[in-house]
């Protein structure tokens, strides 16, 4: 499996405050990697740096082999993202938003691709609806459709199912798992839903205080650390990271 993301010794400081402290990891094609950790652990900071909207203090990021710092546009052509805190402009329709972002990502045969995604994400009935009038679940689906537009090598998902009902969340998870399995892309996924993470992620990274504390298979990792479940392990990371660091 080839690497779609390589993060080496990534650091981000704001003055004396260290938000991300020497993080290194990779995501390979066909792989879904969960980036987990309590609020303020550095997950969104890490994702922002990979998206090129936040400059690292040090370290390097390569997306599909392209260095982000040296070739920003070329590297970002291989990626896309969906995040609960980044809804698409509410004053444009679903189709207009997809067309604009399709052009920004240089998608070939854009009209055809938009039709595929409208169908795939069950958005055909909303194509002429302004995104601002959609329910939060529908907006999430539009964001995910946007994230899939360019068939990214690296798909970044920051709590993609946070505002979906369980039935819709299952469908979306299936689509993302399918994307990772059938395309050459990989997925970096953050979520606070440990059930979901255990179901979809091949590997997880536990982040605490800006550092990777644990890494491994979400199914076996809890047992390896004497915990009954991934949720229990998450709580332990959030409450007593130092104890786990010594393990």
């Amino acid at each position: 499996m080839s690497q779609v993301l390589s993060v080496i010794d990534l650091c981000k400081s704001y003055g004396a405050t260290v938000a991300v402290d020497g993080v290194s990891f990779e995501v390979r094609s066909n792989e879904i990697v969960g980036l987990l950790g309590p609020n303020g652990a550095g997950k969104t900071t890490t994702i922002s740096m990979i998206l090129g909207v936040l400059q690292p203090t040090s370290g390097s990021i390569r997306i599909a082999g392209v260095d982000l710092a040296a070739q920003r546009s070329a590297a970002l052509e291989y990626t896309n993202f969906a995040a609960v805190y980044a809804p698409l402009p509410g004053n444009l329709t679903v189709q207009q938003n997809l067309r604009i972002f399709g052009l920004l990502y240089g998608v070939k045969h854009l009209s055809q691709r938009i039709e595929e995604l409208l169908q795939q994400f069950n958005l055909e009935g909303f194509r002429h609806a302004k995104c601002g009038v959609l329910s939060s679940g529908e907006q999430t689906r539009v964001c995910l459709a946007k994230a899939m537009l360019n068939r990214p090598q690296l798909l970044l998902l920051d709590e993609p199912t946070a505002s979906l009902d369980p039935a819709k969340a299952v469908d979306i998870r299936r689509l993302i798992v399918d994307f990772a399995a059938r395309s050459t892309g990989g997925v970096l996924w953050t979520s606070h839903n440990m059930y979901e993470v255990q179901e979809v992620c091949h590997r997880v990274l536990f982040l605490s205080r800006g550092r990777i504390l644990l890494e491994g298979d979400p199914k076996s990792l809890p047992r390896e650390h004497g915990m009954a479940s991934l949720e229990e392990l998450f709580i332990a990371v959030a409450r007593e990271p130092l104890a786990l660091e010594r393990m």
Binding site: L51, G52, V53, R72, S73, A74, L76, E77, T79, F81, A83, Y85, A86, P87, L88, P89, G90, N91, F101, L104, Y105, G106, K146
Partner: peptide
């Protein structure tokens, strides 16, 4: 300002747009 009003910076500046 359209990008300011719609809080769209994160979406557009995370694209390859220079």
């Amino acid at each position: 300002f359209e990008d300011v009003w719609t809080r769209n910076f994160l979406n557009i500046f995370a694209t390859p747009l220079s």
